[in-house]
Write a protein that binds this DNA or RNA. Sequence first.
DNA 1: TATCCGTGGGA
DNA 2: TTCCCAAGGAT
Length: 347
Amino acid sequence: MLQQTRLQVALPYWQRWMAALPALEALAAAREHDVLLLWQGLGYYSRARRLQQGARQLQALAEHNEARTADPWPRTLEGWLALPGIGRSTAGSILSSAFDLPFAILDGNVKRVLARLVASPRPPARELKGFWQLSESLLDPRRPREFNQALMDLGATVCTPRNPSCGACPWQRHCAAYAAGDPTAFPVKEAPRELPYQVIGVGVVLNGAGEVLIDQRLNEGLLGGLWEFPGGKQEPGEAIEATIARELREELAIEAGVGEQLIVVDHAYSHKRLRFMVHLCTWLSGEPRPLAAQQVRWVRPEQLGDFPFPAANARIIAALHERLGLEASAADAAAALPHPEESRPAA
DNA sequence: TATCCGTGGGA
DNA sequence: TTCCCAAGGAT
């Protein structure tokens, strides 16, 4: 959870997670649907699926270990790196913090501290090998747990991105960036790229029974494995109503009447900006088929909270509930425990 | 190696 | 409002 995510943000998720999945066996046995529901809103959703895959791998390894003398947790770098979603830094964090073993880490805080310490002239991403060597060479092998924690805390509380407290820094005498006069010039940043911008037409399709149509995205790519309201990119010169009708036809093989606008949601991802133009639609004909998704379902609007949606879609759900006069909000539903109900394909 | 992968807190 | 960037990993 802490990969690219602040402790303060991850903490409430972690507390709910540990209450629902308190041990390796619980995570390994859980439904992926419920795992994603617990992760809903945290972002980088492949982390959740890979974490569960990793739990299942560790459990399988433990069952093949006939001796059963040791716990399932690896004590080697290779053992952790064999698990999906665990890279060198996370492996080093686990080994040093859980077992006090001498393995280095390299998170955002450490990169900044080291970049300033040596006044590294290039962005850390272009010097990863050197940064790893530096982190390893500094590590105190006698107490790696305390050293790594201290190094991260130094970056988080003293050697901060803006307005660092160099007067309180124990490494001030050794810091090349401080000697150069401007510590905030490091780490050197990559030239920011312009974010692509796209308009997405989204259809909230209702049938005669008052049910709404949702689909589960493919596991690969953006927001993999999460549910959404169907839609797609607006093409040049295309009216948004035409976009929505076309996407429903191409991706679900249905015909729908595109009605009034429900809401417009602007959302910035780390690498693109999107504007969702959301319209209420009326299903006309065709059994929905998951042509570009894992599965498709008709669900009652008050049931939407049982499905993991990305953040931008949570605003659409809230608008729909408000339009329909429902009191339950997506946020309320997201805070609830995983729903035991099985999720089945519509077709 | 460069790019993709989310979200939200804080300045 | 806009921008930065966070206990990184996979491809």
